[in-house]
Design a protein around this nucleic acid. Structure first.
Lengths: 255, 255
DNA sequence: CGGTGCTTTGACATCGCTCAACGACGGTGG
DNA sequence: CCACCGTCGTTGAGCGATGTCAAAGCACCG
């Protein structure tokens, strides 16, 4: 768990309160949510296509992916999730999964029963709104991905993904300086970006030789944020992060 | 407005009740929602990037699109909306628009103030859930689009879009037999599918000569549903429609 | 020291883009 | 009624970005 969070539900409470709307009662209700914690190995399905989940999961540590399986063994990774994210909130109101959720790395996950959440929602509309908001941010991420896949070339897509994942991790204290974890393998990034792992590899070389990023041992280092963001045509609005987190000036945030 | 709906809010109530959960009180609350109605010409922005809307809109008639504008005049159409859809529910909890919503054809739109909705939500959690569910279905559409753009070739993408828009319109009574309106121009379909209008045109010819669909005068006719769905690798699960609407057997539903 | 999984590279094929032109159609004004 | 114009659809030729196939390098680990 990232530094600064003593308990899983505190992590959740902090995230939901990022819009600054929760009162003490709501905060307490979140902290008291019953939950169970499990550790999972890498590449393990958490929820599968066709399932009818009765609980939601909260990522405490590690990386999780959401993906659609295609015929012929192909797959499209729809999104990546890191600590603090709740990947399957949609199951609260859509009862049958139309895709899969799986661990990417080994990870620890908290599970919270739908019943418990619905009970809390009935009592605290503000909390409902905060959780609803999380799913809307998820949708905003999807929209941006659509734009990437539809209109950006491979170089821009990769650059955009790096910008997004860096900022999202930075927002929850998982980045240090211009460096952050990057757990997905090249094949997984390719599956997320609609590219071949071969081509992705070539694009990475370009980004490296242009001095924009370096990537090794599961760590991404951004060498030139401004240029990377320019290549990506990156506008952080869609992330809906706190104002304070977003604007990056290399000078103001040295490595 | 499609036949069978006497008032705008009845249209909304019917949609929200598709999961069959609303009680009489909730239904009445929806029917009493204050709203205003406007007619708009084609190609007219309804909400713009950067706006902070104070109301939601409900499409009563015509087509609406959601799009992201890119540098150099390019754009990515993120989704199409038809009668019964509420394109900007996300503004209830995300206060600054990160994209645009515009009319595609001339259309009529009902506007409902956020305040009025929040008031109703506070009183009726079930209604909140129904509306939340609509936004989650929207997100499911996005996911499917990502899969299309990431992993399907042009032919499959176009076929998939046709399957989706046909079924969605069918679900609200806008299709007749295997025929439905298809308002987007070729350039707009191309913008939605990450293709060039030139290439889209060639793909349409292929679909036509293979006897899968025909398209003229703004009307789509599906000539061979099974084959079209096969080309698209179409699985209607993601639409979250009523069970009764979905399964299509050509024999059972002649033109 | 021999797997095993991940990355990197090369040669070649293909899908979709670009640029440019033409055609079909409907509206509008003379 | 016809000439004109704008919008949309259609087609051709050439090119570029990305995919495919195949193999080799490399690191980690038992």
């Amino acid at each position: 768990m990232p530094a600064g969070y003593s308990t899983p539900m505190e992590m959740l409470a902090r995230k939901l309160d990022s819009s600054g709307r929760l009162g003490e009662a709501e905060r307490a209700a979140v902290l008291n949510l019953p939950h169970s914690i499990r550790s999972l190995p890498a590449r393990h399905d958490i929820v599968r296509f066709g399932d009818q989940p009765s609980q939601c999961c909260l990522v405490l540590q590690g990386w999780v992916s959401r993906y659609a399986a295609l015929s012929e063994g192909g797959r499209q990774i729809l999104s990546f999730y890191v600590a603090g994210d709740m990947p399957d909130l949609q199951s609260l109101h859509l009862h049958r999964m139309d895709h899969h959720i799986a661990s990417l790395t080994s990870c620890t996950i908290a599970f919270i029963a739908h019943d418990a959440l619905h009970r809390v929602f009935r009592r605290y509309p503000t909390l409902t709104g905060a959780m609803w908001r999380e799913t809307l941010i998820d949708a905003a991420h999807y929209r941006e991905r659509i734009t990437s896949l539809g209109r950006r070339q491979a170089l821009g897509r990769v650059a955009h993904l790096f910008c997004e994942l860096y900022l999202r991790q930075r927002a929850v204290g998982l980045a240090s300086g211009l460096r952050c974890p990057m757990a997905p393998k090249q094949a997984e990034m390719a599956d997320a970006l609609g590219l071949t792992s071969v081509h992705l590899n070539r694009v990475l070389r370009t980004l490296r030789t242009r001095g924009l990023v370096s990537l090794s041992g599961g760590t991404l280092t951004i060498e030139d944020w401004d240029e990377l963001a320019a290549v990506a045509e990156f506008d952080p609005t869609f992330l809906n992060l706190d104002r304070s987190v977003v604007p990056i000036r290399e000078a103001a945030d040295p490595v």
